[in-house]
């Protein structure tokens, strides 16, 4: 007999799931309808006949932006996780008031709204000659997400028992060796979590590619936005674009989600993962 609380929990989870699934469902059915049908029927009504031609057409149009976005976000996620880990380790090892202050600054910087740094970021990127280039977007993302990575990695590093690092010191290891042989291997789940997090955040980011590039081709979110036309929107194509654009982060989470959760669990168990 399942307990009453389990039943209640299941019902609540199902309700939440339903609410969350609603937009996805709308995307799926919307992208399978013809333009006439999508304009003429309620959003949630199922399609009369399944028409995959829109999906195929839009996917072909999206191939360039999908590739560009991948080229941007994958290195961004790895590089920011790496820099973040190094920063977090250095701050953790140094300790003391200055380290606390730096960590506080890092934490605050993750809260800065995009709009505040819009103008300087664009000008800086132009000065570097990176405006409207893929490296330029990467650069913008790194500026924005490296502090986030450092903050996350710091949290993961504090879960490593201090004893283990001190044992390595007594064994004669220098900082680089401790980082390479002891800390990084133990941070595996944490680094994976951070990479997944930043992959998804940058894939879904709209604002930074918007301000650092011209046109719609350099990031998937821009391309999706481009389906909102000035004189009228092709809703079925827009649905299809949004659906295709959201599949990569979904795949990442489905296949790597367990590492993400493992990373979060590590925080609770003191880096046993």
């Amino acid at each position: 007999m399942p307990r009453l609380s389990t039943v209640t929990a299941s019902i609540i989870i199902a309700l939440f799931g339903l609410v969350w699934f609603m937009p996805v469902y709308a995307l799926i059915v919307g992208s399978l309808k013809s333009l006439k049908e999508v304009m003429g029927t309620p959003v949630l009504s199922p399609p009369e006949s399944i028409d995959t031609s829109t999906l195929a057409k839009v996917f072909w149009e999206l191939r360039g932006p999908l590739l560009n976005t991948s080229i941007i976000v994958i290195p961004t996620a790895f590089v920011s996780a790496l820099i973040g880990s190094l920063a977090a380790y250095a701050i953790y090892r140094r300790g003391g008031k200055i380290s606390d202050a730096i960590m506080l600054l890092i934490a605050i910087s993750t809260y800065i709204p995009y709009h505040v740094i819009l103008v300087p970021l664009v000008q800086f990127t132009k000065t570097l000659g990176l405006y409207d280039t893929l490296p330029g977007v990467m650069f913008g993302f790194l500026i924005y997400y490296t502090p986030m990575a450092a903050l996350l990695m710091y949290i993961f590093i504090t879960a490593i028992p201090r004893d283990v690092i001190e044992a390595a010191l007594v064994d004669g290891a220098g900082e680089w060796r401790i980082l390479r042989r002891v800390v990084l291997p133990l941070l595996g789940p944490g680094i994976t979590s951070t990479i997944i997090f930043i992959l998804i955040m940058t894939w879904n980011n709209f604002f930074i590619p918007l301000i650092l590039t011209r046109g719609y081709e350099k990031h998937i979110t821009l391309k999706i936005f481009s389906y909102v036309g000035q004189s009228g929107t092709l809703y079925n194509q827009m649905f299809a674009a949004a659906l295709i654009g959201s599949i990569p982060p979904l795949i990442v989470f489905i296949f790597l989600g367990r590492y993400f959760i493992k990373g979060l669990l590590v925080l609770g168990t003191g880096a046993k993962g």
């Binding site: 028992p161 004893d163 283990v164 001190e166 044992a167 390595a168 010191l169 007594v170 004669g172 290891a173 220098g174 042989r181 002891v182 133990l186 880096a271 046993k272």
Partner: peptide, 17 residues
């Protein structure tokens, strides 16, 4: 500590997991 040539056993052993 690296240069002291000391062997140390920690309270919870601190093995590299």
């Amino acid at each position: 500590p690296q240069k002291r040539n000391i062997g140390m056993v920690f309270q919870n052993w601190a093995l590299y997991p």
